[in-house]
Design a protein around this nucleic acid. Structure first.
Length: 417
RNA sequence: GGAGGGUUGCCCGAGUGGCUAAAGGGGGCGGACUGUAAAUCCGCUGGCUAUGCCUACGUUGGUUCGAAUCCAACACCCUCCA
């Protein structure tokens, strides 16, 4: 493959988005000639997306920035079926109402990353339920079913895995890939969409769609996948102890979002800067060369840029300020979780275990007890290892607040009113 | 429809009457070390009004002083036969 000439594909390659693609040269040529329309499909299984979807999201953004038209395809219809996906359990089926809510939540996130509208390169969001719901079974079988080889479908990893592990795969789930291929066909017909992108696990589905479109529409369309990211030490992106790193504010405070990026492993800094920020490449090269403690500067920039895109500049600055106060000055940042307490309650004494559980630092009193006994809990940076300890007025610092800490990174504040 | 095998904690997986809140591993978290990193070592990893109590080994009943372990029925899964 020669190196691409179009702005879009050039950036895709340089910034590390490319995993596999079909006929890159022809696609490159098409992208040089004028705006192309491309889509990525997303599930409607939750009302928000998490960091695991960030690579596809950034890819759509890049597409739009380089002068093309992104389509966000919501799998409202296919969510009603469920993807084989190699998981042993079939996916829980959701009600239509819940799916609608989920789509609304996800649209909110995309509106931060893409410009939606009617113009030639404005993004649009479509729901495959629009064309899947009305399908007539017999007609569909006749027109599309004949193009699918079961032999071939059995060879896809998602199916093979389930069969090899002797886990059930229902016919319903087996049909998922047919419906997904049909989506591409339909988008090509309706919106002249010529490119489907997605995670590398979607390669099989994408190729199916390309072939179906060629046979039914007699059009050449393209596919491009992005790598499925794991961190340098092999962990999945976007999962931490406290749960997924959600993109929406209702599910995850911006401070925590900022912290997630701030805690990137050294070995991932360059890769993440390329994928998740829009800094120029020469700047990124400079940053990833930083050694030792200096690389923390690069991580802060990563955290700032990533948070800015998703939560806005103000939220990013506030998070950075809180982090700086908390970690570098040992002070108390505004963004830390805070709870107001009555001074009369404090006079009576507030149990330490209950307090840290209430603040969400620990999940239960029992867990809180263990942490206290292990010496993981601090009150105003002073280690407390007595589980019976009771907070009282003498714990207030000069600003009339009490800082509670679990471990080095989790902090919360009690404020007297 | 018949025969056999299976269902254990977040996940994998041992356990076949009391010593079992259940081995081991993974994951996660905490501590030490550091740079809010990685690696390494140590510890923790059901809940509670806590020297005790409650809930938990697919579901419901039963046997027993005592059941994840034995019996019965049911549900789901797998394999083979029809």
């Amino acid at each position: 493959m020669t190196s691409p000439n179009s702005d879009f594909l050039k950036a895709v390659v340089e910034r590390g988005y490319l995993h596999q693609a079909t006929d890159m040269d022809a696609l490159d040529e098409r992208a040089l000639k004028g705006p192309i329309t491309a889509y990525i499909g997303f599930d409607a299984t939750a009302d928000s997306l998490h960091v695991g979807s960030m690579v596809p999201i950034m890819l759509l953004r890049l597409l739009q920035k380089t002068g093309h038209k992104p389509i966000v395809l919501m799998g409202g219809g296919t969510t009603r079926v469920g993807d084989p996906s190699g998981k042993d359990e079939s996916r829980q089926l959701l009600t239509d109402e819940k799916i609608q809510e989920n789509i609304a939540g996800i649209k909110k996130i995309f509106s931060k990353f893409l410009t939606f509208g009617e113009g030639p390169t404005d993004a649009v969001m479509v729901n495959n339920d629009d064309w899947l719901r009305g399908i007539n079974y017999i007609d569909f079988l006749r027109d599309y079913g004949k193009h699918f080889s079961v032999n071939r479908m059995m060879s896809f990893d998602s199916v093979k895995l389930r069969l090899d592990r002797e886990q059930p795969l229902t016919f319903l789930e087996f049909n998922y890939m047919i419906l997904q291929a049909y989506d591409f066909c339909e988008l090509s017909r309706r919106m002249d969409c010529c490119l489907q992108m997605g995670g590398s696990d979607q390669w099989g589905n994408i190729v199916n769609g390309i072939e179906l479109t060629r046979r039914v529409e007699e059009k050449q369309v393209f596919g491009l996948t992005v790598p499925l990211l794991t961190t340098a030490s092999g962990a999945k992106m976007g999962k931490t102890a406290s749960g997924a790193i959600w993109l929406n504010e209702e599910r995850l405070p911006s401070y925590d979002y900022w912290q997630y990026w701030r805690n990137t492993e050294d070995a991932d800094v360059g890769k993440f800067l390329r994928l998740f920020t829009e800094l120029p490449l020469d700047e990124i090269e400079r940053l990833e060369k930083l050694q030792g403690a200096e690389i923390n500067e690069a991580k802060k920039i990563l955290a700032h840029e990533a948070t800015k895109l998703c939560r806005g500049e103000e939220a990013a600055l506030k998070a950075a300020e809180t982090a700086q106060k908390t970690f570098e000055q040992g002070a108390i940042g505004d963004d830390l979780p805070t709870k107001e307490i009555k001074s009369t309650d404090l006079e009576a004494g507030i149990g330490l275990l209950g307090a840290i559980t209430e603040m969400g630092l620990t999940a239960s009193n029992g867990e809180a007890r263990r942490f206290v006994q292990q010496g993981a809990v601090k009150v105003n940076d002073q280690k407390i290892d007595d589980p019976r300890y009771s907070l009282n007025a003498s714990d207030l610092d000069s600003d009339k607040v009490i800082k509670l800490s679990l471990g080095k990174k989790k902090h919360a504040v009690l404020k007297v009113v």
